[in-house]
Computed example of a mutant assay.
Amino acid sequence: MSGAQPWGFTDDRGTELGAARVPERVVAYVRAGAALLDLGVTPVAVYGSGHDGPGYDPAKAGGLDAAGVPYLGPGRALDEGLLRELRPDVIVDVTYDGKSPYALDEAVADRLGVPLAALSVGNELTLPEILDRFGELSGSLRAAGVAGVAGPVPSAGAADGTGPTAPTAPAGLRDLVEAEAVLRGVAGRTGLAVLALSGAGPDQVHLARPQAWPELARLAALGVRLLDPGPGPGANWLTADWGRVAELRPDLILFDDRFHAVPPYETPPGTRLAAWNPETPPSPAAYARFFRDLAEVLAA
């Protein structure tokens, strides 16, 4: 297809975006860019967040680095001249509050005259809904002939396991449906207590509140027994010392493996460990890998 047809998309802030033709040159926040790559849209470049440094964080990059997609550094420190030279047709970011893009100041896009799509990754949407939205955006962009066939990725299904059948679903979604079935079976057999956390140093750790994270809420819906850290300040995390981890007595710790986080300093004897990326690319393929890896650790 030539990409000459008009393009329109409403992002998760309710912002209606439009262009005279379907965007072909996409610049994206690294998490969004890795998801788009999985879904058949290769960005011309990606940028990081305030947590990121001058190079790719391996936990966040997905297949971007291997695909040769340039990384521009943290979004708040982007060289606007370099961004202009890339001639983006659209910028894709994420939003946690449904109001503002997370990693890039929207004024940058305004100065460039480039539409910015911000898709929600916060807990106002379920994980299947988040995956649907990235599927819808990638489908609209693939209409330009960037890759694949236009159209949204079908829903990954409800918590009861219903969803598209394998013969009609894209390969990544088939893998996700199968991975969820495996994880559901393993979780039901083992019943292990799981605690998700992000290390902050020898004296401090951030304990995740399961319902504040769409992927953790999805794990709970699949039967994984997630531990809540208990009352205290913080909507997404409870900040405590490592003694609180021991008090919760988890059988398995999901630890934040992003570059800026630190490995667990103290774990109760016999506790298993598994990596968790709180910024997993919102694609069926990426979550299929995470769920399969978790199932293997739970079953070990």
Rank of each mutant, 00 (worst) to 15 (best):
V108I: 15
V26E: 01
L37N: 06
K99S: 14
S49L: 10
H51A: 14
R25Q: 09
A61G: 00
A35H: 03
L82W: 07
Y102C: 01
L86Q: 09
Y47P: 06
G62W: 02
E106M: 04
A35N: 01
T42S: 10
Y56M: 13
L112R: 11
A34R: 03
P54Q: 12
Y96N: 11
V94F: 01
L36Y: 12
A28F: 06
L64V: 12
A34M: 06
D105A: 12
R111M: 12
Y56L: 12
D57V: 03
G48N: 10
L112M: 07
P58I: 03
D79S: 15
Y47D: 07
L83W: 07
P58N: 07
E106S: 13
A77P: 04
P88G: 06
G50S: 11
K60Q: 15
D79G: 12
V27S: 10
V92I: 01
V46Q: 00
G50W: 10
A77N: 12
L112A: 09
I91M: 12
V27T: 11
L64K: 12
R84Y: 13
D57Q: 05
G68S: 09
L86I: 11
L37K: 06
K99T: 14
G33V: 09
L86D: 08
V92P: 01
G40T: 05
T42G: 01
A61W: 03
H51Q: 13
D89N: 05
V94E: 10
R31D: 14
D89R: 01
A66F: 02
D97E: 03
D52V: 09
A32S: 15
G55E: 15
G81W: 13
E106I: 05
G73C: 00
R111S: 13
A32H: 09
A77C: 02
A34L: 05
Y71P: 06
A77L: 15
A103D: 12
A28T: 07
L82Q: 14
G98M: 05
Y102T: 15
A45T: 03
G40D: 05
G68N: 11
P74M: 07
Y102N: 10
G40V: 07
T42W: 05
G33S: 11
A67T: 05
Y47E: 07
H51D: 14
G98K: 02
D89Q: 02
Y71G: 08
D97T: 00
V26S: 03
A61C: 03
L36N: 13
T42L: 08
L86S: 09
P101A: 01
D110L: 13
G98N: 05
A45W: 03
Y56Q: 13
D97R: 02
L64C: 11
A109S: 13
G53V: 05
T95N: 00
P74Q: 08
G113C: 09
L39I: 02
D57G: 02
V46F: 00
V41S: 11
G98I: 06
D93L: 06
D79T: 07
Y29R: 00
A45S: 10
G53D: 10
R76L: 15
D52T: 13
A34Y: 00
P58R: 08
Y29K: 00
D65R: 15
S100H: 14
V92S: 04
Y47I: 04
L104S: 01
A28H: 08
R31Q: 15
Y47T: 08
G75P: 05
P54K: 12
E106K: 13
S100Q: 14
R87A: 15
G73L: 04
G113F: 12
G62R: 00
P58F: 01
L104V: 07
G50P: 00
G50M: 02
G63A: 14
